[in-house]
């Protein structure tokens, strides 16, 4: 048997391919040109503004930025630790509340009612007020063993975000088709087993993108604990601003927060894309 000769594309197809290649090259050139024009216009607009020199001095002073970067970075380490702790605790709290809200039966009425009341009130209450109440109100009770202001501020963030995340989890639980529960129950699994092995794994996969998105929001709101006093990145920048009478430390802190968020945002986009692809792959 002779080996099959390699497939030769027809002239029509070769013509199509070269046409598409020419079109692709043209698109890239066009995109580069329009980006250059928009960029130049923006640059001219900002740097040509009458107050640009003053703004550059008080917001973008490289000397002050270098001087305050170490202090702000040190503060950022507190934000990172808070972020990790608060994200894990808020996700756990949210999942717990969402599951409590699905419990049926008269015995669980008070649990259900409390969980519902919690999600309703803490989604409405501004985070700043919760932080003030926790960080200044709780120590005011003068109880033995009151934790530090940092821990109390973190608790305020966990309580507030737990309420949001509980609703996201609940949406995920409700999105699992009832036929899945019917299948699980028909096999003899109890309600709890059906939730644990069949409903929750599917629910969490489905709401992973919005959960991560809320975690991105949480990572910047962690900066609000500066209101309670601990020296985080924002507090350090504030001190810098007060001492130099220049806003550059704020810009430095802002850039650092964006850099901190980038990996998490990247992960969120990747998970969202993967979830969308899986949905399009069909059931």
């Amino acid at each position: 048997m002779s080996p099959t000769p390699p497939y030769r594309l027809s002239d029509v197809q070769q013509d199509r391919i070269s046409f598409r290649r020419r079109k692709a090259v043209r698109s890239v050139l066009l995109a580069a040109l329009s980006t250059a024009i928009v960029g130049t216009l923006l640059g001219v607009l900002v740097t040509g503004a009458p107050g640009w020199d003053r703004v550059r001095q008080s917001f973008f002073d490289p000397r002050i930025a270098r001087e305050w970067l170490p202090e702000i970075l040190e503060g950022l380490w507190l934000n990172v630790r808070m972020l990790v702790f608060c994200a894990i605790a808020a996700l756990a709290l949210g999942l717990l509340i969402a599951v409590l809200r699905t419990l049926r039966g008269p015995v669980f009425f008070p649990v259900r009612a409390l969980a519902t009341l919690y999600t309703y009130s803490f989604r409405g209450l501004p985070l700043i007020i919760v932080i003030y109440l926790m960080a200044f109100g709780v120590p005011g009770l003068r109880l033995q063993g009151t934790p530090s202001v940092t821990v109390l501020g973190g608790a305020a963030i966990v309580i507030t975000y737990g309420a949001y995340l509980a609703e996201v989890f609940r949406a995920g639980i409700e999105s699992v088709h009832p036929s899945q529960i019917a299948a699980a129950r028909s096999l003899g699994l109890t309600y709890r087993q059906s939730m644990r092995f069949v409903v929750l794994p599917q629910a969490v996969r489905r709401v992973a993108p919005p959960l991560l998105n809320d975690t991105v929001a949480l990572q910047k709101d962690v900066g609000l604990i500066s209101l309670a006093g601990p020296i985080d990145a924002i507090r350090a920048a504030q001190i810098g601003v007060a001492q130099t009478a220049n806003f550059t430390p704020y810009v430095v802190a802002g850039v650092l927060f964006v850099l901190l968020a980038l990996p998490l945002i990247g992960i969120t986009d990747w998970v969202t894309l993967r979830a969308a692809r899986r949905q399009n792959a069909g059931t």
Binding site: S179, Q180, A182, A183, A184, R185, S186, L187, G188, Q202
Partner: peptide
């Protein structure tokens, strides 16, 4: 239900 098996029209496997 442990003594009765049920098979559904739309399979209902756990995806």
């Amino acid at each position: 239900r442990q003594k009765i098996g049920l098979v559904f029209q739309s399979y209902n496997l756990f995806p």
